[in-house]
Computed example of a mutant assay.
Amino acid sequence: MGLRGRVSLSVGWVTLFLMGTDLFVVSPLLPFISEAYNVSSAIAGWMVTVFAVTYAIAAPFFGWLSDKNGRRALITFGLVLFFISNILTAFAPSFFLLIVSRILSGLSVASITPLIYAIIGDIAPPNRTGTWLSIVVSGHLTALWAGAPFGTLLEHFLGWRSVFVVMAIIGAMLAIVNFSTWKYTPKSDLTRNPIGGSLLRILGSVSVTTFWAISMYALYVYLGASLYSENGFLSTQIGLAITFYGIGAVLGSLISGQLTDRFGERNISKVTLIFLSLIFICLGIFFSSGDWIYLFLFLWALVGYAGFTSYQARLAVEYPNERGIVMAWNNTALYIGITIGSMVGGYVITKWGYSYLPYVCSIAAVISFALSTQKVEETKKTALSVDR
């Protein structure tokens, strides 16, 4: 890997770490925000909802636009908007403007995250796409167990508004860095109309991610509550469990890149989904087994996020000329799956209790595997050499 490659991966990693922190840090700050604006926690939760909905709607448009006109300008635009939106979040005089700021933030991240994935796929050397994508994906996942806790620590000393000010300043600096870094990246050749048959193929492909997200988040959203209910865990034990999960997610992403480049994107993405379904069954059996749960949470995240990263690499290879829009639709599919997963999880615990959640997640993983066996027609891996 040359100097330019190391710089590109470093910039991509840091940028996605910031995007992940912006996503994950809001939830632990909600009690302080709701108190500041004198609204209930449920109402304050709309900050997360409007962000996710805006992201899911806007990401495919930015992906399509980047395939036609290049990714550099859109990533830079997104980071400038990220700066503006987070400054507005920090100093919004009313809760209405606070919600507007999160809509703008969702719009900004929609023009950054999927395009970083796409641009790394554009510049990765042949047979190294999986490894390169796994590195930048780990930046996003690291925010889960490092970025969000750092934000809560910053809140403790300087207040919740300081968190968004710091993120805004870093976003402004990254706008300059990204504009310089992606100066010599190639443009994609969008040869097919994404409104026609190509879009149907893309939607079929990203449906794998939707069911993967359902399997992962139907349980994860309620993990703390389920550990408290089924194991009697204290807050410190729940925090330790989340740490095991977060470390497993990062390691899974990094290991997946090496395995993907060695054994192929299709093979690793399918094998991990099979193992994921089996791990969920083990989780269901041993969920109340005390300290053993830490091991199974680690394995769950390790295998689950290895599958996500390998499937990202698979999409990058199978759609070389539509990489931007495919990555964007895949991120939209991810958010749709997270939303559906949280709804499914809520229904399951209401009807049958927490102990049934892992088994429902296992079924979703099996469906994701079945969908992953579909083949993308009219796509050749040799097209990568043309794209590069």
Rank of each mutant, 00 (worst) to 15 (best):
M1S: 13
G2M: 11
G5S: 13
G5T: 14
V7W: 15
V7Q: 14
S8Y: 15
S10P: 07
V11D: 00
G12F: 01
W13F: 15
T15W: 09
L16R: 01
F17I: 00
V25H: 04
L29G: 01
F32V: 08
I33C: 00
E35H: 12
N38G: 12
I43G: 02
M47N: 10
T49M: 04
V50S: 04
F51E: 01
A56R: 03
S66H: 07
R72W: 10
A73I: 12
L74H: 06
F77V: 11
F83K: 02
S85K: 03
N86Q: 14
I87E: 10
F91V: 12
F95D: 01
F96Q: 13
V100L: 15
L104D: 01
S105H: 13
V109F: 08
A110K: 00
S111Q: 06
S111G: 14
L115E: 04
I116R: 03
Y117M: 15
A118T: 00
D122L: 08
P125C: 07
G130T: 04
L133I: 10
H140C: 02
T142G: 06
A143N: 00
L144Q: 08
L153G: 10
H156F: 10
F157E: 14
F157K: 11
F157D: 11
L158R: 12
R161P: 05
V163W: 03
V165H: 06
M167R: 05
I170A: 12
A172Y: 07
M173F: 13
P186C: 11
K187F: 15
S188F: 08
L190H: 10
L190M: 13
L190V: 09
T191K: 15
L200C: 09
I202K: 09
I202C: 10
V206G: 02
V208C: 04
A213M: 09
A213D: 00
I214K: 01
S215C: 11
A218F: 08
A225T: 13
S226Y: 05
S226D: 09
L227V: 04
S235K: 12
A241F: 06
A241D: 07
F244G: 01
G246A: 10
G246D: 05
V250L: 03
L251C: 09
L251E: 07
Q258D: 10
Q258H: 13
C282T: 13
D291F: 11
Y294E: 01
L299P: 00
A301W: 02
L302C: 02
G304R: 01
Y305R: 00
G307Y: 04
F308S: 08
F308R: 03
T309I: 04
S310L: 06
L315F: 12
P320T: 08
E322T: 08
N330K: 05
N331M: 12
T332L: 01
Y335C: 02
Y335H: 11
G337W: 03
I338V: 11
T339H: 06
I340F: 15
G345L: 10
Y347F: 13
K351G: 08
K351T: 13
W352S: 14
A365D: 05
V366G: 04
I367Q: 09
A370M: 15
Q374K: 13
E377H: 14
K380P: 02
K381A: 12
A383M: 14
V386Q: 12
